[in-house]
Design a protein around this nucleic acid. Sequence first.
DNA 1: AGCGAACTGGGTACAGTGTTCGCAATAACG
DNA 2: CGTTATTGCGAACACTGTACCCAGTTCGCT
Lengths: 240, 240
Amino acid sequence: MPANDQPPLWLRPEHGTRGPKPAHSRRDVALAAIRIADAEGLDAVSMRRVAAELGAGTTSLYRYVSKKDEVLELMGDEVLAELRDAPLPSGWRDGLRAIARLLREVGLRHPWLTTVAAGRAIHGPHSLRWRERTLSVFDDMDLGTDEMLAALGTLSAFVLGHVLGELADREAARRSGLSHDQWMEREGEYGPMIMNSGEYPRFTRVMIEAELPHAADRQDRGFEAGLDRVLAGIAAHLPH
Amino acid sequence: MPANDQPPLWLRPEHGTRGPKPAHSRRDVALAAIRIADAEGLDAVSMRRVAAELGAGTTSLYRYVSKKDEVLELMGDEVLAELRDAPLPSGWRDGLRAIARLLREVGLRHPWLTTVAAGRAIHGPHSLRWRERTLSVFDDMDLGTDEMLAALGTLSAFVLGHVLGELADREAARRSGLSHDQWMEREGEYGPMIMNSGEYPRFTRVMIEAELPHAADRQDRGFEAGLDRVLAGIAAHLPH
DNA sequence: AGCGAACTGGGTACAGTGTTCGCAATAACG
DNA sequence: CGTTATTGCGAACACTGTACCCAGTTCGCT
């Protein structure tokens, strides 16, 4: 159990007042890393790579950040800046619906975000501002704080889980280096095995009858269907 | 875009008929990897480490598996064997509730599982059997397949997301090498900053008033609260 | 004005990673 | 009894995160 003698990232001043001015900023680091992750996936984000993208020496990065983990934290916070000006409709129901859709969009735009956000609680300024904004949808409701948390917690768990499911396809294909079509073909090879084995009658019926899995917009429709259910469930538990 | 000339894992016969019998099985590999991941986290699962745990030479593993990714796939499937004999109550509502709780338990017992399951669709025998069983909760209902998928999809998205949230604490502490208490203390340092800045009034109110976040069983209660809402939402969309 | 402390940039080095290649030993098939 | 498929495994390669060091820069204080 080593003694971590560094103060947490967001409480550390970005740089001292004494020496030479740093050539870059935390934000620069975050943006460089995000550029790489968006284009080539989270695995491509290495200290050497980020430093190169930044035009700096590899170990100079450790002037801005104490571990690679903190680079990911910077990324996770910075990306929420995209939601800074997104308008939230008034009324809890429309507000929550908008929040869910916005979160999903960000998650799909930056496929590495769910992975990064899943493992850590981010306390950067953009994250805090976003959380403040999500709470504002209950402003005119005189609700207990625990009920707000339950509603928001349920909603974001659903969104996070759904986005992760959506990305499974896409990212699995990318990781394996195959095109999406090639990958779909590989996956399809399992079909006959499942149906011919005779051990999975219900699953087989679903594979034959179900319509949604074959639709091009299946993910959108699946998300909206789930969102409707979650919102209905939240409504059912709200004191009215 | 390299040509992946191997057939997919579960369609490949476990071993040929010609040469010497293999010293281990796929299952052995999975169990060894699971042992390591449970004890030291997913990062500790390296090919060398798994081979050592198995008492085999490092590169011998590639006789059982074509990439490390397939080791993770074996792990993800094997762990579902734990649910093989878990009883599911009849009736869709109790059935789904039991499914959610079982999935959560497995996810918390094996903290690496969500990470593994998030990035890939697993088609191993245990996964298929489990999916077949989840579908069986609708057996006496005469429901359309698309509605079953919507219900199950919403439910598992919620469970996956919630478990990931639960693990964020625990795993972040473990990754940083701190004890949970030490880590909580570090996280707590952010509190004053948030409250004193004055920029997050709603968030501050929640930190002061909310009761649930301080409770020892907050995760259990949060999960059950979310589960109630999701089930209520599913009920609201079921043709009755 | 001058000096020391604080600070930044970055090279070197180390232990560890996934995976390819080649080769010797083994067991079933024709 | 070959022939051939199959297994175990060591060596090697191109990567990774990061601890340690030192030179150069700039501020604050006397």
